[in-house]
Amino acid sequence: MAVQLDPQLLEILRCPAPDRGTLSPGTPGDPEAEVLTCAECGRGYPVRDGIPVLLLDEAVPADGGDPAEQ
C-alpha cells in the first residue's frame, strides 16, 4: 500500500539531512513502498503506522546499503 499522508503535510516535510530536499512517497523502483524518498540525497525514510520516521539513523541510503554506513 502506498504512503497516505495529508498533501499539505507532504508539502512542508523536508529531509533532515543538510540538503533539506523535498520528500516524495515510495521509491523510484517501488512507488507503493511505505517510505518517503528525498529528491536530493535519495535516502528513504520509513513510514510506520502512517507516521514518517524522519531520523537519519533510520534512513535507508540511496544505494540501499546499511544505514549505519552513512
Rank of each mutant, 00 (worst) to 15 (best):
P67K: 00
D19Q: 14
P7D: 08
L56W: 05
A39T: 15
G21M: 05
P16D: 00
T27C: 09
M1F: 13
L23P: 03
L13P: 01
A39D: 14
C41M: 03
I12D: 00
C38N: 07
E32F: 06
E69I: 11
Q4V: 15
I12S: 02
P46M: 00
R20P: 11
P67R: 00
D6N: 15
E11F: 06
V3A: 05
Q70C: 10
M1R: 12
L10V: 04
Q70Y: 13
Q4T: 15
P46S: 00
V53M: 12
P67C: 01
Q70N: 15
G42E: 01
L13F: 04
D6W: 09
V53I: 15
T27F: 06
L54K: 02
P18L: 15
G50L: 06
T22G: 12
G44H: 05
A2T: 05
D57G: 11
G44E: 06
V53R: 09
A33M: 02
G64E: 11
P16I: 00
E69L: 12
D49Y: 03
D57A: 10
E40N: 14
V35G: 00
G29F: 09
L9N: 02
C41G: 06
A68K: 05
P28D: 07
P18M: 15
D19W: 08
T37L: 01
D49N: 09
L13Y: 05
P18G: 13
E11C: 07
P18Q: 14
S24F: 12
D49R: 09
G44Q: 06
L10Y: 04
L23M: 11
L55P: 00
P46K: 00
A2Q: 09
L56C: 07
G44N: 03
Y45E: 03
D30N: 13
L56G: 07
L9S: 05
M1E: 13
A59W: 06
A59Y: 02
D6S: 12
R48S: 00
L55F: 03
P28E: 06
Q8F: 10
M1K: 14
S24D: 12
G29N: 13
G65F: 14
D6E: 14
D57F: 07
L10M: 05
D57K: 07
P18D: 15
I12C: 03
A17P: 04
G65N: 15
D30S: 11
P18F: 15
C15H: 06
E58W: 02
D49K: 07
L13D: 01
E34K: 04
A39I: 09
D63I: 04
C38D: 10
P28R: 04
A62T: 05
R20T: 14
G64C: 13
Q70S: 13
E11Y: 08
V53A: 13
P18A: 15
G44D: 04
L9C: 02
Q4P: 10
D57Q: 08
Y45C: 08
L55C: 01
G42F: 02
L13R: 02
C38T: 06
